[in-house]
Design a protein around this nucleic acid. Structure first.
Length: 275
DNA sequence: GCGATCCTGGCC
DNA sequence: GGCCAGGATCGC
């Protein structure tokens, strides 16, 4: 569900929790805690102050003053919502709740439980199995055209859609923005990396950053579940050129959108425009 | 590569 | 009842 722009919008919307002390953290029986335990998480962050909110790809990091962090992925259906005052909410599929010393709280809900909650000790990315696997974030300034192209070349057999969705090449792209980036770059999603020139990969990289940045500016895409930390929807849906427009014209009226399936994910593209 | 798999809920 | 969904991993 949520991709880089949605998580970045979420991160920004959660600013009110900065500086709060974690009085208590509760988990449901089915909480999607990975590679650690509820007890271990509790022990490491209880009574600590929230120092910053960070993001890598689709992962949100709640960093505490002892430099340990909660690493949260929303999967397809996750929501993280801030409640400024009591009472503590009781929502269906609520798997984690952070209760702060002033009575405010942060509630994590995930019906499908495709999300993950894990722990990062001392802000060392290599100590967390999820962060460890990620390539550089698409909006990280250190990711240059040339280094992106180089990373692409190590996956010569992938088609371009699969390339964009591979979080090890670069992190943060999901199904919606991948379709949008390919359309913006005028590249056929079925093309293989090996069949692309450096200039084409560069244009794909620029398009990727462009659509992700626009997504942030519009507060993310809300198709079904996505809302930011204050429960508000984003409006990027109204600016998508091709996603979810099968058999209709692209938003800019350049051509009719086709829907195909790649790696069991829907791809939307315009064959007359994307080569 | 590709398909199956983990889940719940909404829509036709 | 069946199909589909902003994700990611695993085995073939």
């Amino acid at each position: 569900m949520p991709e880089l722009p949605e998580i970045e919008t979420l991160r920004r919307s959660l600013k009110p929790v900065l500086g709060k002390y974690l009085a208590k953290i509760n988990f449901s029986k089915l909480a999607p805690i990975e590679t650690t335990t509820a007890n271990h998480i509790q022990k490491n962050i209880q009574n600590q102050k929230i120092q910053k909110l960070a993001r890598h790809g689709k992962y949100l990091l709640i960093v505490f003053s002892n430099h340990h962090a909660l690493v949260i992925h929303l999967g397809m259906s996750g929501q993280l919502i801030y409640y400024p005052s009591k009472p503590v909410p009781e929502r269906k599929h609520q798997h984690m709740i952070l209760i702060f010393s002033d009575g405010s709280c942060l509630s994590y809900v995930d019906p499908r439980r495709f999300g993950t909650i894990s722990l990062l000790l001392q802000e060392k990315p290599n100590s967390n199995p999820f962060l460890q696997r990620l390539g550089p974030d698409y909006l990280d300034k250190k990711l240059t055209d040339q280094s992106f192209i180089k990373r692409c070349r190590t996956h010569s057999q992938l088609h371009l859609k699969g390339l964009l969705l591979n979080q090890g090449v670069a992190a943060g792209m999901g199904n919606i923005y991948a379709c949008e980036a390919l359309y913006d770059a005028r590249l056929d999603p079925r093309r293989r990396v090996s069949q692309c020139s450096d200039d084409e990969l560069k244009s794909l990289f620029l398009a990727a950053k462009k659509v992700l940045t626009l997504g942030i500016k519009k507060g993310g895409t809300s198709f079904r579940d996505y809302v930011n930390g204050r429960g508000a929807k984003g409006v990027m849906k109204n600016f998508l050129q091709v996603y979810d427009r099968a058999n209709q014209m692209s938003l800019d009226q350049r051509g009719k959108v086709k829907k195909i399936v790649q790696n069991a994910r829907s791809t939307y593209y315009v064959s007359e425009v994307q080569k």
